[in-house]
């Protein structure tokens, strides 16, 4: 068949897939779910991750973690800055997706995307400064050097905010990876597509595969497997309950926190009042996935 008029093209539809270990697999389960835009119209089908996708993502994150943490902080900062550069180039696409998903008018959507890119740059800058701010030489009464160094907690599972699909996502993921952790993130259930596009940006910048792993699907289905997984070191429940979720009762978040207690994961509870993602984030999200190691060393003669 030929097109009748110039410009009559076959539609090239995009497959929205998961991002695990630097690759874009479909869900192991073969499932997908319908994503609707802010007005409730059909938008696309996205991969619906299963517990096995979550498991594979944790394996990928664990494999990548020592190498990512071993990179010099300055290099990590450069790599993350590169992500912001690529984000900048795809601003129009992000603005369109965020606008359609969150129901924002074009100028407002562009503002949100700008804020997300600025947020990424801000956290990239922190990569080689966290050590000086949170660590350092401690004064002690004795002939010892006493040095504190922040070290990454390890593999962090994050339930991203449900409402703010890009700015919120960037605000919870960037601080975690900037300090040398690797992350498995469950994207916003209702607006997952900007997250998939962000994964494409991560795959085409210099971030090693497995540092950020992104799952789309049902939070209530995937999150319990991450919460009880013994190889996950910390759990961010920002989008799993309370003010930034679809489930304000907090029952799911409570269950996840209980499951996380099995191997004493660090848990970040859902916010009580909705977070203002446009506000100055401070160092809070940088600090919570860091372990302070303090060493004593005798002063020489």
């Amino acid at each position: 068949m030929t097109a009748d008029r110039p410009g009559d093209r076959l539609t090239v539809r995009k497959t929205f897939k998961l991002y695990i270990g630097g690759a874009f697999p479909r869900s192991e389960s073969g499932r997908s779910f319908v994503v609707r835009d802010a007005e409730g119209r059909f938008w696309a089908n996205a991969a619906q991750a299963s517990r096995k996708d979550a498991r594979d993502a944790v394996v990928a994150a664990r494999t990548a973690q020592p190498g990512w943490a071993a990179r010099a902080p300055y290099l990590r900062g450069q790599v993350l800055y590169r992500v912001a550069e690529v984000l900048e180039g795809r601003k129009a696409q992000f603005a369109a997706e965020v606008g359609r998903g969150e129901g924002l008018a074009a100028p407002r959507a562009e503002e949100v995307v700008d804020a997300a890119i600025d947020r990424w740059v801000w956290y990239a800058g922190w990569a080689d400064k966290v050590g000086q701010v949170l660590g350092g030489a401690n004064p002690v009464a004795g002939p010892y050097f006493n040095l504190s160094t922040p070290e990454p907690t390890g593999v962090v599972a994050v339930v991203a905010p449900q409402e703010s699909s890009l700015l919120g996502l960037v605000s919870v993921v960037a601080p975690v990876v900037a300090t040398g952790n690797t992350v498995v993130v469950i994207a916003s259930e209702r607006v997952p597509l900007p997250a998939v596009t962000l994964a494409e940006v991560l795959a085409t910048s210099d971030v090693p595969g497995g540092v950020v792993n992104l799952l789309t699907g049902r939070v209530a289905e995937i999150a319990p497997w991450l919460a009880s997984h013994l190889d996950v070191d910390a759990l961010d429940l920002t989008g799993a309950g309370g003010a930034d979720s679809d489930e304000p009762t907090g029952q799911l978040a409570g269950e996840l926190e209980a499951a996380a207690a099995e191997n004493l994961k660090r848990v970040r509870r859902p916010p009580v009042v909705p977070e203002d993602w446009t506000a100055d984030p401070g160092m809070d999200r940088l600090r919570w996935t860091l372990e302070i190691k303090t060493v004593w060393h005798p002063v020489g003669v």
Binding site: R55, V58, R62, W225, S228, H229, L230, D231, V232, A259
Partner: peptide
């Protein structure tokens, strides 16, 4: 146990 284990175990 019904939950995933890890190489630490």
């Amino acid at each position: 146990t019904g939950h995933y284990s890890g190489p630490d175990h």
